[in-house]
Structures are given as C-alpha cells and as structure tokens.
Write a protein that binds this DNA or RNA. Structure first.
Length: 508
RNA sequence: GGGCGUAUAGCUCAAUGGUAGAGCAGUGGCCUUUUAAGCCAUUUGUUCUGGGUUCGAGCCCCAGUACGCUCACCA
C-alpha cells in the first residue's frame, strides 16, 4: 500500500500502538447504548429534575477534535446521532495524553462515562475511559463541521461528483444529506411493498439471465454461461415472465428488481436500474391508473410524511388526482395534427413536415408519434399526468381498444416532465399476440437492435389462457429522484455506473 | 456519438508566459467548559496524461483520459 504524508503519520501511530500491545482494530466492542439512546436517557432524567447519573458506554466515529491542554473535546457519531465527548485529565489521568498522541478525526472509538451538560449547554459524555475501536488511516475529506441552530454546516466538504460517486463511502461519511436520500429511497421501496402486499399481491422473483429478452424496446447486455456453452441476456424487463404467472393462477404478482439496458447514460438513465412491475388479474388500465395514484400517494406519505412536493421549480401535490390526457387529443391540441388521419408512415411524416417538424428518415409511424409526444407533450406534463391511448405500433403487448383496434389501452405517467411509469391492459389473445410479434419483426429494420426475438414459450403460455389483466412498470430510481428532489439519477443510486479510469490515473 | 466546460496539496479553491499559494486538515509548542476554539511555528505538489511552441508553460497549441452540462438515443 502506498501512503501519503498524512497517512504515514497514522500508520506510524498504528505501529506504536502495536508496540504498546494495544490493538488498533480490536475484535469486540462493549457498548451499553447507542448515542441517541444515551442522549434520550439523559434528557428524560434531566426533565424530572433528578441528578441521577446516566452511565454509558458508547461508540462512534470521531468527527471533530479540539485539544486544549489538559482538556479535549471531540464529537463522535454513530448511525443514530452525534455526541460530544468531554475529556478531562481529572477523570482520564494518563489516558488523556494517550488520547492526544494516538487518536485522530475519523477513528472509531469507544468511550465510557457519565452524560452531562457542559457549561455551554451541550449534552456531552464526561469520559472516564476511552478505547480505540478502529483506526482510520486516510483522513476524511471534510475536515470540519459545526452545528448552527441544529443545522450541520460544513466548512470544507467533498463536492467533486467524480470522487463522491467513485468513493461513495467517503461521500456518505461526510455528507449526511446523502445518507438521508438513501434512507428515503429505502422507505419508498418499503412503502410500495407494503401497499402491494396489503392489496393481496404476491412478491415474486423471475430470471435475470434470460435466453430470450423482451418486454421492452431496448438493447440488452449479453453474457455467457461457460459450462452450458450458452449465450444469455440480462433482462430488460420482467413483463413476459410475470404474465406467465398469471396464466399459472397467481392473480396478483409484483417484482422489484434490476433491469439492464445497454444504452446511453444520462441524468435519468443508468445502465442498470430498479424497476417495479405488477400485474393484476381483472384490472384494466383505468383501474391501474386509479391504483397508481393511490400507490404513489401512499409511498410519499410513508416515506416523506407529506404529499406536497417540489421538484426543481415544480410544485405538485400527490393527494390530488392526476391530469389525464388522451394522446390523440393532446397531440392535436399542441400541433394541429390528428394522427388518426394519417394511417401510414409516409402520410404522417408529410403532415409533420408541413407543420415544420423535422422527421428523421427511416422512422416508422409509431416512432414518429413518439417523437410528437416527447417534443410537444412531455415537456408540458409538469403536474402529475397520465397520457393514455397509445398507437398499437409502439405497444406490442397492450390490448387494442374494443372500439378502435388501431389504439391500445396504454398509459404512461409523467411528473415534472419526466416519464415515471408505463402501464396497459395486457394483451391476452395469443393469436393477435403472435401477429403483433411478427409485425414487429417486419417493422423493425434488420439491424435494429431493439428488435426482439420472438418468445415462443410466452406465446405457448398465452395459449393456455391468461385472465384479462392490468400491468404496470415504474422506475424506482426516477420515483426517488422526484420524491427527494434530485436532478440526476446518480444521486439516488449508491454506486452509479462510471467509466473505468486508467490504472495510471487511478493511482494519482 | 456531437458541442461546450472543468481537471492545481488529503479537502475547498487562488495564481499577467517569469521562484506554485491560501483556508481547513497534518506536525511541534502554549492553553481545564470548547464547539469553524484561539495564538505562535511548520510540512505537504507527476499543476490529469502524452507531445509541441518558447530562453522559460499551471497558463499558449495538438492529442488522449475522466468528470460535469447539453444535444442525440432511450425508461
């Protein structure tokens, strides 16, 4: 291991401790309470006016240090909170010098003593003995912090995003607001599970490694099983497996897990992302819409304690019903184009060009409509909005509307202009499904990597009969972005994908 | 993949083409209720990498790498 000058000093301290027979990394600690428990116990006794001493052993990481001769102050922090240690030669004797010689900011320590209030009113541990629990060699990036009116103020911090993401451990130590994002994310996921469980959904797990990928339009990652001599794909969605379960009689299923899409990285795309999909027999997309409103509202209430939220400049209230916009009407209103009047790629492209809208050659009709949606509708969906009734060409797994076979019962949900979820009344007609798969094979160019191979086993499952059902998919990362007001997906993923660095540069 | 921007001490940042600096952290000293403690002293550099121009490059030029913003593609 290479050490810089600061680290060498600490490594020397470890060696000296070893010579003294004192472990820098002892095996066990013997705490009697967490920091939060110690503070609460003291406040409880204090409130009764009693001076009964609260004697505790606590542990945590040293986050600040002020040495003043025969007296020293240090704040230690564990997962529950932070407390000041009041270290005085009166109680510690020789141990104070030992502390000054060997303990640094960043070390994990265990302290025994009595909880008191110092003259300036801060709850502190009047420490009678202190022990090293784990020595830190590398200095923490944030050197100093103070708490002003209950708010932690950093005087230097870790802000370089590259270091923050590559060394998330350091980011988490010094930036408490980052820890809070991930606590909130965890609460969101728990709340979604609670909500679905309470509606009699069964949580299931389906294969990540798949011989045939499908259920979404995306390029897959390819991997290989050595012993079976078989190429496998990392799943791009759960859809085709979850619907097999409805054939099998599991009427309400959901899965929360990872999808992998081999595509561009952006502020709202990570190559692997967490998806929630559920399928519910005897639901249609209108029931799913209502259910979605309830579910997201529930998640916000449970995770944040409120439904009134702000994302950037956009304020929205998840307690209110979402706007509902019919796609054909929405596009007509914004562009003057009624796409139903242009049933072919050529006629629609011509109509768009006439309105001054550039179209890329080679795009099929469905993708042209998608372009109209993303250019003219999505940016206007700042308030929670369901856009519904998608053309059949871009919805190969959604059921056609009984009154209009060119339109499917599908919706997507948007907040703050960002797509959040996608749902439909599921296609359960195996003959139409096969025709749609074959049609997809025709409409996609030979070299279009979003072209999915036909999943014959899925068709076989449909032939046994699947109950009419509603299906739903939502990016958990994006929901977390919206609920925690983060402008990039990397802030809500603990270890976001970053490009590999050269060995040479990594060493620097 | 395209465009624009950034890269300097452990961290946050300065530095007209002319000796590479500050604050914090570190180290030594003073200091028994501090809390960005204070005071005195002091150390730390592949200026992202590789070329080039120049008497001389952190700075100018070329190429590369990573990150950020943005466009394209997608969820």
């Amino acid at each position: 291991m290479d050490f810089n000058e600061l680290e060498k000093v600490r490594v020397q301290k470890i060696q000296k401790l070893k010579e003294l027979g004192i472990p820098a990394y002892p095996t066990r600690s013997y705490i009697s309470s967490t920091i939060k428990e110690a503070c609460e116990a003291f406040e409880k006794v204090e409130a009764t006016g009693s001076d009964q001493p609260i004697e505790v052993t606590i542990a945590g990481r040293m986050r600040s240090l002020r040495i003043m001769g025969k007296l020293a102050f240090t704040h230690i922090e564990d997962g529950t909170g932070r407390i000041q240690l009041f270290l005085r030669v009166n109680e510690l004797g020789d141990q104070l010098q030992f502390f000054k010689d060997y303990f640094d900011i960043g070390d994990f320590v265990e302290a025994h003593g009595t909880v008191i209030r110092t003259r300036s009113g801060e709850i502190s541990l009047q420490t009678t003995s202190i022990r090293m629990l784990a020595k830190a060699i590398s200095p923490l990036p944030a050197a100093k912090e103070e708490v002003v009116d209950g708010v932690t103020v950093k005087h230097t911090g870790l802000s370089d995003p590259e270091i923050r993401y590559r060394q998330r451990y350091a980011d988490l130590v010094v930036n408490p607001e980052v820890r809070n994002i991930f606590r909130t994310r965890s609460k969101i996921v728990s709340a979604l599970r609670e909500f679905l469980d309470s509606h009699d959904f069964l949580e299931v797990e389906t294969p990540v490694l798949q011989p045939i990928y499908g259920g979404a339009a995306a390029r897959p990652f390819i991997t290989h099983h050595n012993q079976l001599h078989q190429d496998l794909y990392l799943r791009i969605s759960f859809e085709l497996y979850l619907k097999r379960l409805l054939v099998g009689g599991l009427d309400r299923v959901y899965e929360i897990g990872r999808d992998f899409r081999n595509e561009g990285v952006s502020y709202k795309h990570n190559p692997e992302f967490t998806q929630l999909e559920f399928y519910c027999a005897y639901f249609d997309y209108l029931k799913v819409m209502d259910f979605t409103e309830q579910m997201i509202r529930y998640a916000a209430e449970k995770a944040l304690g409120t439904t009134k939220l702000k994302y950037g400049d956009v304020e929205f209230d998840l307690a209110k019903p979402w706007n509902r916009v019919n796609m054909r009407e929405g596009i007509l209103e914004k562009t003057g184009i009624d796409f139903e009047k242009y049933p072919t790629t050529e006629s629609l492209a011509a109509a768009m060009n006439e309105k001054g809208i550039q179209t890329k050659p080679g795009l099929q009709r469905g993708k042209l409509i998608n372009q109209l949606v993303s250019d003219f509708l999505e940016p206007t969906f700042l308030q929670p909005t369901f856009l519904y009734d998608y053309p059949w060409e871009v919805s190969p797994l959604a059921k056609r509307k009984p009154e209009n076979p060119l339109i499917t019962e599908r919706f997507e949900g948007f907040i703050a202009g960002m797509e959040l979820c996608n749902a439909f009344t599921e296609l359960n007609d195996p003959i139409d499904q096969e025709a749609r798969f074959l049609e997809m094979g025709r409409t996609y160019a030979e070299d279009d990597e979003e072209r999915n191979p036909i999943d014959e086993d899925y068709l076989r499952a449909m032939r046994y009969g699947m109950p009419p059902c509603g299906g739903f998919g939502m990016g958990i990362d994006r929901l977390t972005m919206l609920l925690t007001n983060q402008s990039t997906i990397r802030e809500v993923i603990l270890f976001p994908h970053l490009r590999e660095r050269d060995k040479d540069q990594e060493d620097n």
